[in-house]
Nucleic acid binder design. Structure first.
Length: 560
DNA sequence: GCCGTTTTCGGCCCGACTGTTTTCAGTCG
């Protein structure tokens, strides 16, 4: 866990424990502070009180934790309510107050205790609980135990396409779209939200229930299902509320709260049914109308995170985001000379299909022994093959390499070879267990190398499995400006590295971002879509993306 | 506990759904 995530988790726990004790309002304050910490850039905890929603009290506790490794007040709370509140509240329908009550009444401290109490029929005897609640807890336990990580966008997006098609085919459905974090294209997804219009809601929900694992809840306007390892929420709305419902269910929560506040400031009210003044509905049919009624530009879903987009849209200053069609090439591709399966011809064919003008073949270099990285002479042979293919291709094929940044910051390919190759992507693949200073130095050294053009997957993270080493992005960006180097946004859905927030800092610093797929097979070149949506989440325009430049612009930048 | 173009106290997003209630609390998003 990053330091921010670690502190945020403690603050969430603090909030839950307070709520379990029936404390009012404070839990909200701790959660807001936790959200703010989680969203903040690395290093922001040096001055916690500078963050939104962090005041003197919580700021002091953060400092206490960073200095001593614990927070006295939290330790006291944990003694008063010694329960695994994070695990217990993962059970559907169990929140902090329920967890607190079950601890006080039945000494339930963790999932095992909860299961035991439910199976023994002890929960139904507690005042305010019944047989149905006990049953729901038993049902929810299994899911809570196996649902751990959020789904990757790369898994959720194709699944949601399939789900959406089934929903659209269901009886009564006139219109359906995916909303929620999927529509915002977050790197990980909690559940699949669908907004739909149906002429027969009962028939629709019944048909969807047929292929779902089970039905969690079903009401007039809403139904939830378990689907493999995720949850599917159907939100059923009337045709004339489509726009306001889509805004509402797309979120994020923070964006919605900011929109509602803006409505209140204008003597209006915003909910999923529309923008209102008193009992008069002013807008609701399309998202564009809703934003217009709030005197704002339309906000693309990827920006709806309350990271300044509400203010920017009100001032008419939203960026003109990069689009999929703006991408003209892929500058980090592997072939079958090391660990990939693609061929030069195969990559070219796929690139044509994607409407590209160019691509670069950047095979692994020698130090990456595990995949049989290419020696200097083998890199030259591959370059010759790429040049030959270039002659007969409609595309511009760049020669290249994905070189390794060694422990001391040097590059594992000979100078003369690096000079000959047109695109040099430099990446860290070894000695990943570094402290921030060491990692930063290593990256900066690579940036300073005269032949390096792009730093590949800068943090080395793998979503849900490897955190990546910490580094000082500001220092790397400064070096990138000085030496004319781009950072990669690796579009592989397991990486998405740099991430959305880091893209924004690149954009602000004026460092070009290369949206590369790092494809090892032709099909993987399609990952570019995840990269583009992540770039959009980082407020990037086409001009900020290195591989949306024309061949001529790119050749000039590369100096070839 | 945090915040402020109704500022240093008095509010704190809001609606659906469920289960347990005879009017509402807790959870969720």
């Amino acid at each position: 866990m990053t330091e921010n995530a670690e502190v945020a988790a403690l603050l969430y726990e603090f909030a839950d424990l307070l709520e379990a004790q029936g404390v009012e309002y404070k839990p909200r304050a701790y959660r807001d502070a936790a959200d703010s910490v989680r969203e903040a850039p690395r290093g922001a905890l040096e001055d916690p009180e500078a963050l939104d929603d962090v005041g003197e009290a919580i700021g002091g506790k953060i400092e206490e934790y960073l200095e001593t490794g614990s927070i006295e007040e939290l330790e006291e709370l944990r003694e008063e309510i010694p329960v695994d509140i994070e695990a217990l509240t993962r059970v559907e329908g169990v929140g902090p107050k329920t967890a607190g009550k079950l601890y006080r009444e039945l000494d339930v401290r963790d999932l095992d205790d909860l299961e035991e109490a439910a199976e023994a029929g002890r929960i139904r005897k507690v005042k305010g609980f019944g047989a149905k609640t006990e049953e729901n807890i038993l049902d929810g336990l299994e899911f809570a135990r196996r649902s751990h990580d959020r789904m990757l966008l790369g898994d959720a997006a194709p699944l949601s396409e399939e789900v959406l098609q089934r929903v659209r085919d269901a009886e009564g459905v006139e219109r359906a779209e995916v909303a929620g974090s999927l529509r915002r294209r977050k790197e990980t997804i909690g559940d699949i939200d669908v907004v739909l219009v149906s002429s027969d809601r009962d028939a629709t929900t019944a048909e969807v229930a047929e292929y779902a694992e089970d039905v969690m809840q079903k009401g007039e306007s809403k139904a939830s299902y378990h689907l493999e390892d995720c949850q599917l929420d159907l939100n059923m709305v009337d045709e004339d509320e489509w726009g306001s419902a889509l805004v509402y269910f797309t979120g994020s929560m923070a964006h919605n709260v900011a929109l509602r506040q803006r409505a209140i400031d204008q003597d209006k009210k915003l909910n999923e049914y529309g923008v209102w003044r008193d009992d008069t509905r002013l807008a609701s049919e399309t998202e564009e109308e809703v934003y217009r009624e709030l005197d704002m530009e339309y906000v693309p879903p990827e920006l709806r995170e309350d990271r300044g987009e509400v203010e920017a849209a009100a001032d008419g200053e939203l960026p003109e985001l990069v689009e999929h069609g703006d991408v003209r090439g892929d500058l980090h591709l592997h072939v079958d000379r090391t660990d990939g399966s693609a061929t030069i011809d195969g990559l070219v064919e796929k690139a044509m299909e994607l409407g590209y003008s160019y691509l670069a073949v950047t095979e692994h270099s020698e130090a990456l022994g595990v995949v049989g990285g290419l020696s200097d002479s083998e890199l030259r042979e591959l370059a010759a093959d790429v040049e030959e293919a270039d002659e007969s291709s409609e595309l511009r094929l760049f020669t290249g390499v994905e070189a390794n940044i060694l422990k001391d910051g040097s590059i594992d390919v000979g100078e003369s070879v690096l000079e000959e190759l047109e695109v040099v992507v430099a990446s860290i693949h070894s000695n990943l267990g570094m402290e921030e200073d060491e990692a930063t130095e290593r990256l900066v050294s690579a940036v300073e190398h005269p032949e390096v053009d792009v730093i590949g997957h800068p943090s080395g993270r793998l979503l849900n499995s490897r955190e990546g080493y910490p580094y000082d992005l500001d220092r790397v960006l400064e070096a990138c400006i000085d030496y004319g180097v781009a950072l990669e946004l690796n579009a592989n859905p397991h990486r998405l590295d740099v991430d959305d927030r880091e893209v924004r800092r690149c954009v602000e610093a004026g460092v070009p971002v290369a949206v590369n797929t790092d494809a090892h097979a032709e099909m993987e070149m399609e990952y570019v879509g995840y990269g583009v949506s992540t770039a959009r989440r980082g407020w990037a325009e086409a001009s900020d993306i290195l591989n949306s430049w024309s061949v001529e612009e790119l050749e000039e930048w590369l100096g070839c």
